[in-house]
């Protein structure tokens, strides 16, 4: 969880220059780098079957972001932008585990909906977008969320046997 927290926070800074090429071209305020950053929260939450783990990671990320001054345009309200997508991830995995008994089917919806939640939170707090530009912002977030979702599904499937093997060995 701690590793995914850090990866999520700092990967955003790393991929931002490349992501900005897309968002600058489309004249929207972001959405691509956020989805990539949320992927690490989704991977961790898919491997740890505890409700609230993504929200806790989001809260820790927001504290780190405040500490390092990486809050972007949200400023002091940044924790909302980190915790809300975390809650959405938790909710999707809770439902996925309840309905199918497994977290894997929830990875894709968790990625898409958490990306959309993050972009809507940013819209409400900072950007106040309307109309077509808001629709485009939401769709770009959802599309990049689904692309990262494909990666998250693959990474989660590869990590699951390793993590469960180590926890069984310890037990």
């Amino acid at each position: 969880m701690a590793l995914c927290c850090d990866f999520g926070l700092f990967s955003k800074k790393l991929v931002s220059p490349a992501a900005n090429l897309i968002t600058d071209f489309l004249h929207i305020p972001g959405g691509v780098a956020t989805s990539f950053s949320l992927m690490f929260l989704v991977i961790a939450a898919s491997l740890i079957p505890v409700f609230g783990c993504a929200a806790v990671m989001g809260a820790i990320q927001s504290m780190l972001a405040l500490f390092f001054g990486m809050t972007g345009s949200m400023g002091i309200l940044a924790p909302i932008g980190y915790i809300l997508p975390g809650l959405v991830i938790d909710l999707i995995f809770f439902l996925s585990r309840k309905i199918t008994g497994d977290s894997a089917p929830g990875i894709m919806p968790a990625m898409i909906l958490s990306s959309v939640a993050a972009c809507l939170t940013a819209t409400i707090i900072v950007f106040r977008l309307r109309g077509l530009v808001l629709l485009l912002y939401v769709l770009v977030s959802a599309a990049s969320g689904s692309l990262c979702g494909l990666l998250a599904v693959s990474l989660s499937c590869r990590l699951k046997p390793i993590i469960f093997y180590h926890s069984e060995v310890k037990a």
């Binding site: 004249h27 089917p105 077509l132 629709l135 485009l136 769709l139 959802a142 689904s146 979702g149 599904v153």
Partner: peptide, 27 residues
């Protein structure tokens, strides 16, 4: 599941592309 995920991704990417064309042309 992988096929379903791919279909969802393709639909979302196409929808975003379509809306971006409308948005950029009207801007």
């Amino acid at each position: 599941m992988t096929k379903r995920n791919l279909v969802i991704t393709v639909i979302l990417v196409l929808a975003a592309t379509l809306i971006s064309v409308f948005y950029l042309r009207g801007r």
